[in-house]
């Protein structure tokens, strides 16, 4: 792969859509070509700035949603034919149609939400974090001794030093256990800064690539993000491991921890 290929394929690489073999070739080129790496980092930086600015726009959807509901309620063709309308007072009929439209819009919205594609590994990580960390449902097999957690990591091919390296910058390792995300084994580590808890999911890197668009790069490692309700995920890959960070505070929390983790690993 040469520099021209990199320029052509960059949109697919950044969006996480490049086939694994091509993505690996892309990575190899980036490691040997500082100019392309700089270019990609600059793109990621500008993307991040643009995203930050546009997402800060005030968008109040309440008025639009209300107008849509009212329009649906006011359209006979959206409901029953006029000849079949119930003989009830006009204001009650309007109120009933409004309520019906509300339910229909809500139902449509829920269907729209379900229709959005979410990578299974992220959905599983968000659900696992909610159950294990936020709701703290009692589960066996949590280890709390860092030495034992490191040993568990080693058993699964993950260097124990990487587990401990994450416990820096004011964060400490609270507990760890193995879990399954998208039918793959991950080491689930929980770190805390005393007030917030973060989940980090690690597995040995293989040919499978993380899905999602690249948000920024840290030490040459592309960072991807995904928000699922109140869970926020930031993910990255090092030459050795695939890592997912999940926070339930804010997207910025997940991103901040992921930046530290990506720099440390």
């Amino acid at each position: 792969m040469n520099c021209s290929d990199i320029a052509e394929l960059a949109p697919l690489y950044i969006a996480g859509e490049l086939a694994p073999r091509r993505a690996a070739e892309f990575d190899v080129h980036l490691k040997t070509c500082p100019a392309c790496m700089r270019e990609l980092e600059e793109q990621a930086r500008l993307d991040g700035r643009l995203r930050e600015i546009v997402l800060a726009d005030k968008t109040d959807v309440a008025r639009v949603d209300r107008r849509v509901r009212e329009s649906i309620a006011a359209r006979p063709e959206a409901g029953t034919p006029a000849s079949a309308q119930w003989p009830m007072p006009r204001r009650w009929a309007i109120a009933a149609m409004g309520i019906a439209a509300g339910f229909l819009v809500f139902g449509l919205g829920y269907y729209f939400m379900l229709g959005t594609r979410v990578a299974r590994v992220y959905a599983d990580a968000a659900a696992d974090h909610r159950m294990e960390v936020v709701e703290q449902q009692p589960r066996p097999a949590w280890l709390v001794d860092p030495a034992e957690i490191s040993a568990l990591a080693k058993q699964h091919g993950i260097p124990g030093s990487e587990v401990l390296a994450l416990a820096s910058e004011g964060y400490h390792l609270e507990r760890g256990r193995m879990c399954g995300l998208d039918n793959r084994a991950f080491l689930h580590l929980v770190y805390s800064d005393g007030t917030r808890e973060f989940s980090v999911y690690l597995r040995l890197r293989d040919a499978e690539r993380l899905p999602g668009a690249i948000r920024e790069t840290v030490s040459g490692k592309p960072l991807r993000t995904c928000d699922l309700g109140s869970e926020h995920i930031a993910s990255f890959e090092t030459p050795r491991v695939t890592a997912l960070v999940v926070a339930d505070g804010s997207a910025e929390d997940a991103l901040h921890f992921a930046r530290l983790a990506a720099a440390a690993l």
């Binding site: 546009v54 997402l55 726009d57 968008t59 959807v61 639009v64 949603d65 849509v68 819009v105 449509l108 919205g109 829920y110 729209f112 939400m113 959005t116």
Partner: peptide, 14 residues
């Protein structure tokens, strides 16, 4: 509706 915010954000910029 879940996507109305994204739609409005893009529409405003367009």
């Amino acid at each position: 509706m879940p996507h109305s915010r994204s739609l409005l954000r893009v529409a405003r910029r367009l």
